[in-house]
Design a protein around this nucleic acid. Structure first.
Length: 460
DNA sequence: CACTGGAGCCAC
DNA sequence: AAACGTGGCTCCAGTG
């Protein structure tokens, strides 16, 4: 094993980052315990109801016959034996160890009320047992208020990203609105404060463009009129860009663009896209179903779609021709040396997969832009003896509990750091950077976009 | 009883 | 070269 030291700057980033994270942990996030208790009780009642109705079902009678006293409603393995074994439902997918798959996607196609109810139950249990109960258990009292103090770690992730624990504040539900509402309403600003979240826009794609220095990628990441995810949605679904719906764009982003950049290939991506078209009920902006639309373009089967995505991938490689060649040189260089460097001064020695080599130099340094920003903003808040505090961090966003009289100053400064100062600090970032700003005087769930207008920040 | 790994699912 | 990456938490099932 060859060991190469990381740079002093990289060490300093982690040291100062850890100190800033310690301040964040000490500050903590205010919790509305009444909301948590109430929501816990509500979810608990609902869970009891669903469990009772499952136990009355004929399917559960079979379950009991098979498992007797060992019957456990929470066991996917037991469910699988009952529906695939006893009821003769066809098992289409298996896990790595050969057991029948019982995740939400595998169960979705099974048209049994019992199975649908079971899936619903599992989802609700996740909300209650992981998120609500975690927050309830870990909250501590200070005066009349409750706070959680999540840990933010810099020493656990080998790509030099961060992680969070006790509770993990970086995986609180947001995409599923119903779940998000149940959980995020629990996180509230201190009295006289508002919660402020500032996110880097498209940080990872910009980190990607900066790392590969592909001129077409840099153009996409720099020109606000260009949008790679929208354009690739157009190509994947054979739509003119003005008929690309929000959903289509999101699927192109998460099931084509990022997978492609991180080492997936057309067979996996076509399969994922094809099933998600029906799962998500994907439509064009005009409201036409994507399957129907593709049929008019001569694509009727999964196999035909795969052939199409193969051509889209070829075009993607031509569009970003420099990237397409540079990634193999990057991989070869690693094979020769046994280590690879990050733009932020870290060195990664050891045994890595090809996909690690594609992902780490982007994910790590992209996070470091956020980390550096956290350090600056935290130092500024302390130096000026402000009452506002950073209370959390989620890879490319900062959550702060801002004293209302300090709100304008805070927003001006945080934007300056995240868009200007970080680029002065690191010249490897060769695209512009933007932030999206959200504010709430009520809860983390209720945040809404803000913008700057004639020097004043206002609700957008 | 403590511990471990698999499976599943939440985030970026 | 292999088939998108990084985490944390909970429950189940098995082990000693």
């Amino acid at each position: 094993m060859i060991f190469k030291p990381s740079s002093p700057a990289a060490y300093r980033l982690l040291m100062e980052g850890s100190a800033a994270f310690a301040d964040i942990e000490e500050a903590g996030i205010r919790v509305d315990m009444r909301h948590v208790d109430r929501t816990m009780r509500g979810a608990g009642e609902k869970i009891k109801q669903i469990e009772a109705s499952l136990r009355r079902d004929e399917v559960y009678k079979i379950w009991r016959r098979v498992y007797g006293e060992k019957a456990s409603l929470g066991s996917g393995e037991q469910l699988a034996r009952v529906i695939f074994g006893n009821l003769g439902v066809e098992c289409k997918e298996r896990t790595a160890t050969g057991k029948p798959k019982t995740d939400a996607e595998a169960l979705e196609g099974i048209d049994l009320p019992f199975v649908r109810k079971w899936s619903m139950l599992e989802k609700l249990k996740k909300v209650r047992n992981t998120f609500l109960r975690g927050t309830q258990r870990l909250a501590v009292r200070r005066g009349d208020d409750w706070f959680i103090h999540p840990s933010f770690n810099l020493h656990l992730v080998w790509t030099y990203r961060s992680s969070s624990s006790e509770p993990n504040f970086q995986n609180q539900p947001v995409r599923d609105k119903r779940q998000a509402k149940l959980i995020r309403r629990a996180y509230i600003p201190r009295d006289g404060h508002v919660l402020v979240e500032t996110d880097f826009s498209s940080m990872e794609f910009r980190g990607c463009a900066s790392f590969w220095k592909d001129s077409a990628m840099v153009a996409y990441a720099s020109d606000p009129k260009l949008d790679i995810h929208r354009d690739m949605a157009g190509e994947c679904f054979l739509l003119p860009v003005d008929n690309v719906s929000k959903d289509c764009r999101a699927f192109a982003k998460n099931q084509f663009v990022f997978p492609e950049l991180y080492g997936s290939y057309y067979v996996s991506m076509a399969a994922g896209l094809w099933t998600s078209i029906s799962r998500a009920g994907l439509k064009t902006k005009d409201g036409v179903g994507i399957y129907e639309h593709l049929r008019t373009k001569g694509i009727r089967t999964a196999k035909e779609f795969e052939g199409h995505i193969k051509r889209v991938e070829q075009k993607f490689n031509e569009r970003f021709a420099h990237w397409s060649r540079a990634k193999d040189r990057w991989w070869q260089k690693y094979l020769e040396r046994g280590w690879f460097p990050l733009a932020t001064g870290f060195v990664c020695p050891g045994i890595f997969s090809y996909n690690n080599l594609m992902n780490t130099p982007i994910q790590g340094p992209s996070f470091h832009c956020l980390l550096w920003s956290v350090i600056q903003v935290n130092a500024w808040l302390k130096k000026n003896k402000m009452r506002s505090k950073i209370v959390g961090q989620i890879h490319d966003s900062i959550l702060a509990d801002v004293y209302e009289p300090e709100l304008q100053d805070y927003l001006n400064y945080v934007r300056e750091v995240m868009t200007v100062k970080v680029r002065e600090h690191w010249d490897w970032i060769i695209t512009p950077l933007d932030v999206e700003v959200d504010v709430s005087d009520r809860s983390w769930f209720d945040k809404s976009p803000w913008k700057e207008e004639n020097g004043l920040w206002v609700s957008a």
